[in-house]
Each structure stands twice: as C-alpha cells, then as structure tokens.
Amino acid sequence: MPVSDLSSTAQDYLKLIWSATEWSATPMTVSSIAERLGVRPSTASDGIKKLVKQGLVTHAPYGSIELTDAGREHAVAMVRRHRLLETFLVQMLGYGWDEVHDEAEILEHAVSEKLIERIDQKLGHPTRDPHGDPIPTPEGHPHLPAATQLSAADTGRAVEITRISDADPQMLRYFTELGLAPDTRLFVREHRPYADVTTIRLQGRDRDIDLGASASEAIWVIAV
C-alpha cells in the first residue's frame, strides 16, 4: 500500500513515532503521542488501535509503541517528504528555517511521489534538511551522523553543529541571532550543570555565549 493511500492522521502518527525516536532512545507511548500531537489520550489511543489493525505498529498494553517493517517504510517515506519540502522551501522559495515546518506539515499530505522525486532531483539529492536532520534516501536509508547533544559534549574541544531541533521556531530565531546553524564550528568552554548553563565560543569570535539547558539540548554536534 502506497503511503498516499493512508489517511493524513495515520501518516502523522507514523512519522511522529519514527522521528521522535530518531535521536532519542525514549520509547513512544500513547500519552507521549497525545502530548506531541495536541490531542486527547483517548484520541491517540484510538489512532494507535487503527494502526495496529493495519499491521503498521505493535502496542503492548500500557507499554511502548513500535513500528512494524511496513509501518517503518511508510514513516520514513513521510519523513523524506517532509524534509525535502522544508529544504525546497528554504533553498528555492526563500523561506526562513523557522518558517518551514508548519508549511511542510500541510504540503506533505498533498504532494505526489512524482513531485517529491522531481524536488529531490532539482535540489541535487540533498542528504539533510535546513536544520541538519538527515533526509532518507528513496530506499529508506537515513544518513544519521554520530552526533551528541551539545549539553553532553566534552569541554575544551572544537565541535561542529550537525543538527538543530526545529521544535521551537522562536528558538531557531534566537540561534540565528547568535550565529548558530548547521556547520557552525565552536568550542565547548564549560558546563555548569547546577546552573543549567553551557558556555561556548564560536570559531573566530572573541566572546563567550552562555546557553541554557533547553538551548544546548536542542543542538547536536560532532567532533572536528
């Protein structure tokens, strides 16, 4: 069954389950899905039951929700659509990286596979979106880097930003003001866990920047 044959709700659920566990080992539950989608737990529970009947997820009573092979295939297809659309909106239409998530959420349900492949070709087959999230290949293979959250990065060494969470557009605008984006190089100066502060310095700059816990946890880096 093509992903386009699924309802928009089913597509949203599958994409959320996959993407939420892409960078975290925390399992998905009905309550976490309800919270992320802004729906009642009973609504989320009914949605998951439908996906179980379709053979797209497994759900142990009061336990975690896991994608089946078929569910994963559909989920990755939706993630690919979403991230290619975000990239297209930024690179070809001049959107800001803080504007594209909601637009892509709408468009991903309407576009055809033919259009997605044309967009992929037009963009030169990008491997990540404007936030650094890996764009899966048509075969469903992501390009997940060996990254760690800035909040857990070793101090006293240079790192490069590889991914920034797009969950909060206001935070993305804040990062823009600070000059933080994928490929930005910086030094991790200090972690102050009792103050929930990580101090960094951008390469080529002469002043430190203090980031709170929510900001430093939204940034993934790799050693350089």
Rank of each mutant, 00 (worst) to 15 (best):
T155A: 14
A152L: 12
K15T: 02
T184I: 02
R157I: 06
P136I: 09
A218M: 03
V52Q: 13
G156H: 06
P27C: 06
E66M: 11
P126F: 06
G212Y: 03
K49L: 14
V159H: 09
S42Y: 01
P27V: 07
R118E: 15
L14Y: 04
S24T: 13
M28P: 00
H125K: 08
L14E: 05
A181L: 10
P169C: 04
V39Y: 06
L89W: 00
D98Q: 11
G140T: 01
L16H: 10
A44E: 08
P182A: 03
Q54Y: 11
D120A: 14
T9C: 05
E99C: 06
T26E: 14
M78F: 03
L144S: 05
L107F: 12
A146E: 12
T198C: 04
V76S: 07
F187K: 10
E160D: 00
S45Y: 03
A77D: 09
P182C: 02
H109W: 04
G124A: 10
T43R: 04
E217F: 02
A75F: 01
A110Q: 11
D102P: 00
I65D: 07
D133W: 11
V52M: 11
M171F: 06
A152G: 00
E105T: 12
T58A: 01
Y13C: 08
K114E: 15
D120H: 11
H131N: 12
H101Y: 10
Q203D: 14
T137Q: 03
G124R: 10
G212V: 09
G71Q: 03
I17G: 06
S4V: 10
V57P: 03
H131S: 15
G179Q: 04
R81A: 09
D12V: 11
G140W: 01
M1S: 14
Y194V: 09
A60V: 11
I219R: 01
Y95L: 05
G55Q: 11
P142T: 09
I119D: 03
V100A: 07
